[in-house]
Design a binder for these strands. Structure first.
Lengths: 248, 248
DNA sequence: TGGTCACCTTGATCGAGATCAAATTTGGAC
DNA sequence: GTCCAAATTTGATCTCGATCAAGGTGACCA
């Protein structure tokens, strides 16, 4: 499963709570100081829609805390999550008039926001910001394409294992025993949200989670807290290459 | 289904056969003239792998003629196409060491290529190129996310109809009766390639194509030449919003 | 301390698409 | 033309995940 190489490059901005990958006005080049004045924080409650697909885009920004989801819905109600936004992920579309997808808060979410127009001006004038944002977008594209393999070709069990492996790998609260060994984390998604992400029904998600539990590949404390006794064993269930991908 | 807004912005470069969206050295800003010296064309035959996943990336470039596919393969042979590259599409990853996916020629393909290092240098120094490439990448990302909805939630029939609608819409040979009315084009993909793109088996693809033919939604001349008597009727089968997406 | 509501689990059955197995078509090669 | 291998179509059957339908669980509150 795809692991963003960006993760190790995150910069903590001290009293700026957000670790912007591209737009931090404290740790970036001096041009970015102008962003400091137009920065604003906003918190959304779980379940709230932050942006509606088709809306005029008002702002760009980053997730500070919480988890948000990019989703699409068909007229008859079928829904597909097309992206998961974790802290430090970028939200918005410089250069686009209309938002292409819904952005929904999966948990309580705090965003650090910038008005779009001045941000775009900065982008046009500052190559370092543009190339940083390009790099981030390429990462997102790679992640989306990994997800296409999951949606198109993996079994329900492989989908669940892959999702758990990704969340475990990205959750900042554990950064410890990452490669293998015992890992514990809080699921930020309901069974229904997991189903929407994986292209399954919530019943199938529940059944497969139960099956992994029964086989001691995962342990549950309550519904949402998950312990993985051996990360390598979980990885075996994802269908992904277990080696680094290089066939030497 | 997602329609790239770039299409209308394509620039024809006269005796330069490629309509680079971002990197044309004839129609771009003067800095790009340096690219002219390192441009090289190469043709690949149908079925040939242009880039192997995991390879060192040697070049970036654009598709001049033909159709190429980005694909991923699991150890047990399950395959998923994650992108379709048509003429004028960009190939490669500035800023990446290793190619993330295989690039395979679906038909005979001609690429216009640039060595990666000088291209990256140009990218860092030329904001207009970086922002153009960012815009293109955002389009690809939107297209990938549309495709995630297709893979996760659409029926086999909707998948086939969507693919035909996209190819019809992107194929440069028809740019005529686009919105509705009669449309005709050559399928650049085998049934197996279609299956790999749609997350289906080739038998299911064949059956659904036959069904659409039986219901006079499409007509076949041979296996690959397709006529759509009424594009709007085909769109009805895709599951997508038939209106422009704006609910006024 | 019991009620309620949202979320989750489990069971029974169904069906779309996969799989296995032949035909049939076709586009070249000669 | 005629032959052949590859691509495609079609048929029969099976299976995984969807669907329909109850129950269980726990957090919150009166």
């Amino acid at each position: 499963m795809y692991q963003s190489p960006m993760k190790s490059e995150l910069v903590d901005c001290g009293d700026c709570p957000i670790r912007h990958k591209a737009v931090c006005s404290r740790c970036g080049p001096p041009e970015l100081a102008i962003l400091e004045n137009m920065k604003s924080y906003k918190t959304y409650e779980a379940g709230q829609t932050i942006v509606w697909a088709g809306d005029q885009t008002q702002f760009v920004g980053s997730v500070v805390t919480g988890v948000a989801a990019l989703t699409q819905t068909m007229e008859d109600g079928r829904r597909q999550m097309v992206g998961l936004l974790l802290p430090s992920d970028f939200v918005g579309r410089p250069g686009r008039e209309l938002a292409p997808f819904d952005v929904v808060a999966a948990t309580e979410v705090t965003l650090c926001r910038f008005r779009k127009a001045p941000f775009e001006k900065l982008l046009a004038e500052t190559p370092s910001v543009a190339s940083r944002l390009l790099e981030m977008t390429l990462d997102e594209l790679d992640a989306a394409r990994e997800w296409m393999l999951l949606l198109g070709r993996k079994t329900a069990r492989e989908k669940i294992a892959s999702l758990l492996a990704i969340i475990a790998g990205r959750d900042s609260s554990l950064r410890l025993a990452s490669a293998s060994g015992r890992v514990q984390f809080e699921l930020p998604l309901s069974r229904e949200a997991m189903a929407d992400y994986l292209g399954l029904t919530l019943e199938t998600v529940s059944r497969q989670v139960s099956a992994l539990k029964r086989e001691n590949i995962i342990e549950l404390q309550g519904k949402r807290r998950i312990t993985i006794p051996d990360f390598a064993v979980l990885m075996n269930e994802t269908g992904d290459d277990t080696d680094g991908g290089m066939l030497t």
